[in-house]
Design a protein around this nucleic acid. Structure first.
Lengths: 218, 218, 218, 218
DNA sequence: CATGAATGAGTATTCATTCAT
DNA sequence: AATGAATGAATACTCATTCAT
């Protein structure tokens, strides 16, 4: 089920005019999504106002509703786009470097996406909407959380292959290391919008790696 | 003057009238808190309606406001109460039993509060309000997260004292074990209201303990 | 409680007890009226709150309603009492002194009542209630304004008798001199609660007297 | 709609659509102001209800708030408009006619505004709000009282210039004549909503003029 | 296709008055 | 007689969504 299934633009006929229109439409859609993301990040779902999103996107509310049938749908589209961005990371991590180097790199990749791109704020917005739109929450979890853990598991697999860690269930170890880091570096951000990454974050990462290695190292 | 006097001298500390009123008042307060918890759990803070809470509690809105000056105050009272219930539990944990027994017990205490008493839903409600009212989030974090970790650290301290774990910074290990468990057992509940504790939760706890012991065991 | 109370006051026959009760009741009525006047002066009729009046008077709201059936009735009582105070002034003014001396004295009497006893604020409250309770407005005008003009007319009559002014319709001249003074000294207070009597008020009075004398002097 | 048309309608400053909207908007604003004036005159500021004003104006409350950001702003607009209507009247008064003719004319201008256009009721509404919102009172006083007196002073200046009155401080004489007339013709209306201009009002005006002339005439 | 004015249902909070003890 | 908790009706203001042009 794709909850982000918003209105599709009309079937393509290739006149110059229609191309122009499609271009204009795409531009507006783009600016609406940007404005919406901004609003949702700053105000959460409920307090974000459609009128304000329209204003920021420089379109009328009616145009906004031409592109997205409802506030929920718009939110869903913003979220979908957000985890599309997430999925682009850590392609071939783990193939070289020590365990600590690899995991530190992976952790920093995730953390920078989380903090610099405003994912924390979006995550709060999603959680806020869980009771109203459970599918969004589940989909976000599936794509934004599980997939990421699987990516971490893959990295750990590579470390196992390279003989740096012993054979074990990397799904569990991935959860464990993710959890240890999330606890101190992401969890606080859920409750405090002004929370920033602490200066000693690399030390915290090193500690988690040490614990991981104590259990799974060779 | 005379009247005030008679009130002080003649009236016993707890007249029948005052007792009656106190009783009624306490009853109403109780039903308001129950109704409010229910509403906040189901609808979050913003969408919960004071009128509906009053209806569920079978009082007028004005009575509701006699007991709690604002929606925020009511919400805060609900949260506070939820935590008071927990804090009574793991009082003298850690003084006997193996590491695994102790931590399994502590974990189950926390988990039952989260799931059986609806704390997950309240947590979502709090997170939903963070962008609009940051104080609520910070207060909850202080009480619900930090204090909890300190409780875990104290338990670990006892295990160290008993010689079951080696000397180490228990603040960090408390974070680590909390994080490992939260990752698989609480984090999903944030995004999926129908998430229930998995059947193999004790195995997950055991894994986390094993990792902890690998690093900090003697 | 009530029993202990009556034992203390030792009421053998009903006369003593009733006296006591009447005294208490009168005291309460007095403090209610004082509190109400204060509230109405500061907040006007609509914004004045019965609960606050009760609090200031140190009685319960129920007691308050035992004495006055409604907010309107209480207001009416406050106003009635206010112009009873007004009517007590300028008994035998005009029998000696120059025209200017006499009128300056009379004017200052009125002005001090108006400003020092908070009549301006009560006047605003009355005017505010005119659309809701026209009788109060009319009665206040009758007793507070007309009677005062008649008092002024009497004073002018005495001046005529003493040969300081020529024969004329003193009802009209009383209106004229009242109006001239009210214009600059009372009218502004209707619109500005912080308005205070100007330092040159005696000059303004002198001007009005000069105009009066120009027309009606001998 | 054809291609050329749609391109054109995107750009022009005053399309038919905009004209239409301007027209509709102006109409609604007009009916809102009328409804609001009516409500404020009958119920005063506090008791007037925005919902009722909207109903009378045949618009939704939201539309009402599109035009005026708050109840205060709407009230202020009503007051301002009431005064704009008056200020257009006595433009070049005083350039011809006798003293009595000129002042009678000016007085009648003011009186018709007060009585026929319901300014008395608005004035009561303003006074009612003075204790709660002093700015409203001061603004009204500035516009409604001070400006009016200055207008009268200007008229008197012209009479001085024409040699009908002797040189004097017309600010004071303006206050005097205003006060004399207000006393008998406007002051009663503050306290009695059913007060109507008396039949002998022209005689009262004549008396005031006579007094004025006695002091300041040549 | 784009507009933005208009909608109406919804919300937190207040207050004069009553009622059970 | 006195209390003060409880009431319920009332109010200003907001916002997602629609509609006439």
């Amino acid at each position: 089920m794709n909850v982000a299934n918003s209105k599709q633009t009309a079937a393509p006929a290739h006149s110059g005019l229609e191309n122009y229109r499609r271009r204009v439409s795409a531009t507006k859609r783009r600016s609406i999504l940007d404005a919406a993301r901004d609003e949702f990040q700053h105000n959460g779902f409920t307090r974000a106002a459609m009128a304000e999103i329209a204003r920021k996107a420089d379109v009328s509310t009616a145009t906004l509703y031409k592109h997205f049938n409802s506030k929920e749908e718009l939110f869903s589209a913003v979220i979908t786009e957000a985890y599309e961005r997430i999925e682009e990371t850590d392609a071939n991590l783990g193939e070289q470097g020590t365990v600590e180097e690899v995991i530190t790199k992976a952790a920093n990749n995730i953390l920078s996406a989380q903090f610099d791109q405003g994912l924390n704020a979006l995550m709060r917005a999603v959680i806020a909407e869980v009771s109203g739109q459970p599918e969004i929450g589940r989909e976000f979890f599936e794509r934004g959380v599980i997939q990421r853990q699987q990516a971490v598991a893959k990295i750990l697999d590579k470390l196992v292959q390279r003989g740096l860690l012993k054979q074990h269930d990397t799904e569990i170890s991935a959860q464990e290391v993710s959890g240890m880091l999330r606890e101190s570096l992401i969890w606080p951000a859920l409750f405090d919008p002004s929370f920033r990454l602490p200066k000693d974050k690399d030390k915290l990462i090193a500690e988690a790696v040490a614990t991981l290695v104590a259990r799974y190292g060779k």
